[in-house]
């Protein structure tokens, strides 16, 4: 029994924990206005997703993928798909250019992260993080984690595709929430959900071939899969996630040091200050990619050691540092 039928996949609930995802040969664009059936497309996207999920898994990312049932069917963990998808852009293309009128091919100094609402009726509109949180599409914690994970996935995928002479222009990620609240990479990761250009020629290898009627869609999709399968050894990647833990005295607890600072500031003539509370901040770096598991670990550290829950509260800010930006950071010093 098909529980959910999307534009290119069907989802069948198997039990409380698992689903089967069937990849169909349908391809569509422009919110389903343009659609077609392309032979082999289901199998190719399924196998590409398997390959990329397996690669991401090796680097420590948590995904919904469990195993392959057949070439077009996957066994996956059952998750609630979040209504927000995350796009990461290295080079300008697609809706980004259309929205702002920028030309295609601008290389961004830092990858851009955009959130979109999954809503065909409103053409998957761009949404700010604060609106997404305010409207309860996702929690603030999830928003931070989704961005951090996406940045880390970008770094890995850039390296992978670079090995096979492809340039990662942009990609989209979907996330799912397990019943335990764990955030997993979900849906598919294939030429349908990313833009890839031939490094030497700039030739388009992805779904833009279909959108822009460039032809040979399946030939190029197949080529990407073959190149991925030809990778012998995965590139080295040293992840670096940092978390800032801010430890504050609880409101109900007197803060004598804050009081003294307050009086000193008042004496200096800063009359509009209402109160001062002093706290602590810890910046912890992890050699791991961001994940819910890492986040739970950080919470445990913060609650059991970094703070004393009797008198202190804490707040977490998890970030992912790219290897590049970290190097630059050190050079600045």
């Amino acid at each position: 029994m098909v529980t959910y039928s999307g534009k290119a996949k069907d989802v069948i609930a198997l039990n409380d924990k698992e689903v089967q995802i069937n990849f169909r040969d349908s391809i569509s664009a422009f919110d389903g206005v343009k659609k077609e059936e392309l032979a082999e497309k289901g199998i190719i996207n399924c196998l590409t997703s398997v390959k990329l999920f397996e690669i991401l898994d090796k680097y420590g990312f948590k995904t919904h993928f469990i195993s392959k049932i057949s070439d077009s069917k996957l066994l996956c963990k059952k998750v609630t798909i979040l209504p927000i998808e995350v796009v990461c852009r290295n080079i300008s293309a697609g809706s980004f250019c259309k929205r702002y009128g920028f030309e295609e091919g601008i290389r961004f100094e830092q990858p851009l992260i955009e959130f979109f609402v999954k809503d065909d009726e409103h053409h998957d509109p761009l949404i700010t993080e604060s609106v997404a949180v305010q409207m309860k599409f996702i929690t603030e914690n999830e928003a931070i984690l989704m961005e951090a994970i996406t940045r880390a996935v970008n770094e890995v995928l850039i390296k992978i595709f670079d090995l096979i002479s492809l340039q990662l222009v942009d990609f989209k990620l979907e996330f799912g929430r397990t019943t335990e609240g764990q955030l997993l990479l979900a849906d598919e990761i294939s030429a349908d959900t990313m833009r890839l250009w031939e490094k030497k020629t700039g030739e388009k290898k992805d779904k833009d071939r279909y959108r822009q009627d460039l032809g040979d869609v399946i030939v190029h999709y197949k080529d990407i899969l073959e190149r991925l399968n030809s990778i012998q050894k995965l590139p080295d990647y040293k992840p670096l996630s940092t978390v800032q833990v801010i430890i504050k005295l609880r409101k109900s607890v007197l803060d004598p040091a804050g009081e003294v600072t307050f009086h000193s500031l008042s004496r200096k003539g800063f009359k509009r200050i209402e109160s001062v509370r002093l706290g602590k901040s810890a910046e912890i770096a992890f050699n791991a990619v961001p994940s819910s598991v890492l986040q739970s670990e950080i919470e445990e550290i913060s609650e059991k050691i970094l703070s004393n829950p009797l008198i202190e509260d804490f707040e977490l800010k998890i970030r992912h540092h790219s290897e590049k930006s970290e190097k630059e950071h050190f050079q600045e010093k």
Binding site: V253, L254, D255, P256, A257, E259, V260, L310, I311
Partner: peptide, 10 residues
């Protein structure tokens, strides 16, 4: 039980 924190006089 409890905790020892900064003296009131700082």
């Amino acid at each position: 039980p409890g905790v020892l924190t900064t003296n009131l006089s700082t």
